[in-house]
């Protein structure tokens, strides 16, 4: 694809992509934009309900556990920071895979894709542990064992939003891992060498970074604020 952008170039006169990207990549961008609105709607409705409530459970009291550490230990933010680190790390390995794809370095693409998949699975495992732990405490859709910050009994809004939004994000991570595995299989088969480019790695990479991007907002909205 031509990347030389000249001032005289008539982008809209036909014969080439006016956005200088392939159809597939452009549509991935627009899909991600629409998905951003879906997540945005969920997070904004969460914010609206939280603003509407006179009090809300304190995240530092709710999320303070770590696997293999006594339940009485008070470790707010530690586990979710680890999850954030894993996801950022897997984003980095994804960019390195895309980068290796530009070099047509099949072995390197496969290596970084494998690391990205491992990162994704590690993140999902962490989330599975957190959900299991909260479920054991009695938290689920429609059940909220955590009191408000001011000591009053909380509504189920807190757990409903938490499980819906992190669940929807986890679903995105899951489909991202599946897509990454499909792409890895194609890389190993040599499909993209035959095709002459590794653009599919870039497209699935965009999706993967978006999942990381959403997590940045989920992390802030549920654990920091």
């Amino acid at each position: 694809m031509d990347t030389a952008v000249t001032a005289q170039k008539k982008w809209w006169s036909g014969g080439h992509s006016p956005f200088n990207v392939s159809y597939g990549k452009l549509m991935m961008w627009y899909f991600l934009m629409s998905d951003a609105f879906t997540f945005g709607a969920l997070l904004i409705s969460y914010g609206t309900i939280r603003f509407m409530s006179t009090s809300w459970p304190d995240p530092n009291e709710v999320f303070h556990s770590f696997p293999f550490v006594s339940h009485t230990a008070h470790l707010p933010l530690v586990f979710v920071s680890l999850m954030t680190f894993i996801l950022i790390m897997s984003s980095v390995t994804m960019v390195l895979a895309v980068h290796a794809g530009h070099m047509r370095d099949r072995k390197a693409v496969a290596k970084w894709m494998v690391w990205t998949i491992i990162g994704g699975i590690a993140f999902l495992s962490c989330q599975a542990w957190e959900w299991t732990h909260l479920h054991e405490l009695g938290a689920w859709w429609g059940h909220n064992p955590f009191a408000n910050e001011d000591g009053t009994i909380a509504s189920t809004n807190f757990t409903n939003f938490f499980f819906t939004i992190t669940g929807f994000h986890g679903l995105h991570v899951t489909s991202g891992v599946v897509l990454n595995i499909v792409i890895l299989a194609n890389v190993l088969k040599g499909t993209y060498d035959d095709r002459g480019h590794y653009e599919m790695v870039e497209k699935v990479g965009l999706y993967w970074h978006f999942v990381d991007l959403v997590w940045v907002f989920v992390f802030t909205c549920f654990y920091l604020l």
Binding site: W11, P18, F19, W29, Y30, V95, L213
Partner: peptide
């Protein structure tokens, strides 16, 4: 700020042409 870095650097949006950036 973090979102900016992910979108601009990891998703390479800053290297796309202006029209594409704007439609997004």
């Amino acid at each position: 700020l973090k979102a900016f870095f992910i979108v601009a650097e990891f998703m390479h949006l800053r290297n796309e042409i202006r029209n594409l950036i704007m439609t997004i």
